[in-house]
């Protein structure tokens, strides 16, 4: 591995100042993704700002009506947290389905939502948009696992399982910069490649994600995360569905449905949410929701299989989330 220096900040503010002052510095949480990118020479930081050294930033706590998750909370701790499992099942299920036990023990929530894409062109150091180039090789290349929504100019899919769960739960991200803090809705944190095809989110140089807050769900809320893999374990979602439904018996009062594995950002589907709102969950409604979810899909040469897979997955996830055996 290339030579580098590890620094242990005492606070997020100190971390942000270090990052702002040194363009060759990078923040690191669990380190699983970052070290792999380093070993593959995809990135080449001279300094790592070790956020774990700050200490105490891995807590999962309730403050009033808000759940607070420290940026350094591990995926393992989130997936086993009693209150998260009970009230925010979609997040516990998403965190519990990331990669492997070893990755979940090391991996942090902030690192999971900010991991870089797993497009094989990016990871193999092709000069693509993500590597600072000006093309996306997947368009005419091997695009089996690429976007069917929101692609262009880059057609990566956002790799995080927890990000769609957080968007569906209406989470907010707290961000520390060198000169202050800001807060942004999870839905606005992620940015399509039209904004900047080299990036997946709005985090600026010299900023670190410090905390994620989630409002208490409305009474009767039920949720689930469905992750479809191309093998039984240990990979990213080919298609994923985060479904959060506010239920009253068999009646769906409101819905938030966010997809993974299909777009360069966690892909919210308002058209699906609208046809569910105020309706009784029936087989017919679930079929129509599945159809709605794939409207406007623009598959590439080798990923049209995602369209029927998504249609069925949305239906299944909504059935599970609703608890209605329609």
């Amino acid at each position: 591995m290339k030579s580098l220096r590890n620094v242990n900040p005492k606070s997020f503010q100190e971390a942000a100042r270090t990052l702002a002052a040194d363009p060759k510095a990078m923040a690191v949480g669990g380190g699983s993704d970052l070290l792999q990118l380093l070993k593959e020479h995809t990135i080449a930081p001279d300094t790592l700002v070790n956020l774990k050294a700050i200490g105490g930033q891995d807590k999962i706590e309730t403050h009033g009506n808000t759940l607070s998750i420290g940026a350094l909370a591990t995926l393992d701790s989130i997936s086993h947290h009693a209150e998260v499992r009970q009230k925010y099942a979609v997040l516990a299920e998403a965190a519990g389905q990331v990669a492997t036990p070893q990755i979940r023990n090391a991996g942090t929530i902030a690192g999971n939502v900010m991991q870089r894409p797993w497009c094989w062109y990016y990871r193999n150091n092709f000069p693509c948009y993500k590597n600072g180039g000006n093309t996306c090789f997947s368009i005419t290349g091997e695009n089996d696992f690429h976007a069917i929504f929101g692609g262009g100019p880059s057609f990566i899919v956002h790799p995080s399982d927890t990000a769609p769960a957080l968007v569906a739960l209406g989470a907010r991200f707290k961000i520390q910069g060198a000169n202050g803090t800001r807060e942004v809705a999870a839905a606005d944190f992620f940015q399509p490649p039209t904004v900047n095809p080299a990036k997946e989110n709005s985090l600026a140089a010299g900023e670190v994600l410090t905390e994620i807050t989630i409002p208490a769900p409305a009474k009767g809320t039920r949720s689930t995360y469905l992750k479809i893999l191309d093998r039984e374990a240990w990979t990213h979602a080919v298609v994923g569905v985060a479904a959060v439904l506010e239920m009253d018996g068999a009646m769906c009062k409101s819905a938030r449905v966010v997809l993974s594995g299909v777009a360069p950002i966690p892909w919210r589907v308002p058209a699906v949410e609208q046809i569910l709102a105020g309706q009784r969950i029936t087989e017919d409604l679930l079929v129509r929701a599945g159809e709605k979810a794939v409207e406007g899909a623009r598959p590439l040469a080798k990923n049209a299989y995602k369209v029927p897979l998504l249609r069925a997955s949305v239906k299944q996830a909504l059935r599970t989330a609703s608890g209605v055996s329609a």
Partner: peptide
């Protein structure tokens, strides 16, 4: 590490 399984190739010793 502290009782939890981790990949030792994906941790820096300094951490």
């Amino acid at each position: 590490v502290n009782g939890k399984a981790v990949y030792s190739c994906s941790q820096l010793a300094v951490w």
